[in-house]
Measured scan of single mutants.
Amino acid sequence: GSPGIQSFLPPGWEMRIAPNGRPFFIDHNTKTTTWEDPRLK
């Protein structure tokens, strides 16, 4: 199987799917959430 997208996120980050189907990202380091992919910064 191919590695999940989770493995490509920075340490402490998690990806979830919102009720509307959009992915969002949780930064457990700062306890914040964002719509922006942290890998694109």
Rank of each mutant, 00 (worst) to 15 (best):
F25W: 08
A18P: 05
Q6I: 12
F25D: 00
P23S: 06
F25M: 00
K41Y: 15
I26Y: 10
P10T: 02
L9E: 02
F24E: 06
R22W: 08
E14W: 01
D37P: 15
P3S: 12
F8D: 15
A18K: 05
F25H: 00
L40I: 12
G21L: 03
T33L: 12
A18G: 10
S2A: 14
N29E: 08
P38V: 03
P3V: 10
K31V: 06
T32V: 10
W13V: 02
T32W: 09
W35A: 03
N29Y: 08
E14Y: 03
F24M: 10
M15D: 01
L9G: 01
G4C: 10
D37T: 04
W35I: 05
G12T: 01
F25T: 00
M15E: 15
M15Q: 08
W35V: 04
S7G: 15
K31D: 14
P11F: 09
I26S: 01
G21Y: 01
W13K: 00
P11A: 14
W13I: 02
P23E: 07
D37M: 07
E36N: 09
Q6S: 13
Q6T: 14
M15L: 10
T34S: 07
S2F: 13
K31G: 14
P23W: 08
P11K: 12
P38E: 01
S2V: 12
R16P: 01
K41D: 15
G4D: 14
N20D: 11
T32Q: 11
T32K: 09
P3F: 13
I17S: 06
P19M: 09
M15F: 05
L9I: 04
D27H: 07
P11L: 10
K31H: 14
N20Q: 03
G1R: 05
M15T: 04
K41R: 06
W35L: 07
K31C: 14
P10D: 04
R39W: 13
F8N: 15
P19A: 11
F8W: 11
M15H: 03
P19W: 09
E14V: 06
L40P: 15
T32E: 07
F8K: 15
F24Q: 07
R22S: 09
G1L: 13
P19S: 13
T30V: 03
N20S: 11
A18D: 11
P3Y: 09
W13A: 00
S7Q: 15
L9T: 01
W35N: 05
F24H: 05
S7K: 14
G4F: 10
E36M: 06
S7R: 12
I5H: 14
K41F: 15
W13D: 00
R39M: 10
F25S: 00
I17T: 09
S7Y: 11
S2E: 12
R16W: 06
R22F: 09
F24I: 11
W35K: 03
T30Q: 05
F8V: 15
W35T: 06
S2Q: 14
K31Y: 08
A18W: 04
G4P: 14
N20C: 15
D27Q: 03
P11N: 09
N20H: 06
R39T: 15
N20R: 01
T30M: 07
P10G: 04
G12Q: 04
G21K: 06
I26K: 02
R16E: 07
P11E: 10
K41M: 15
F25E: 00
L9P: 01
I17A: 05
L9A: 01
T34G: 05
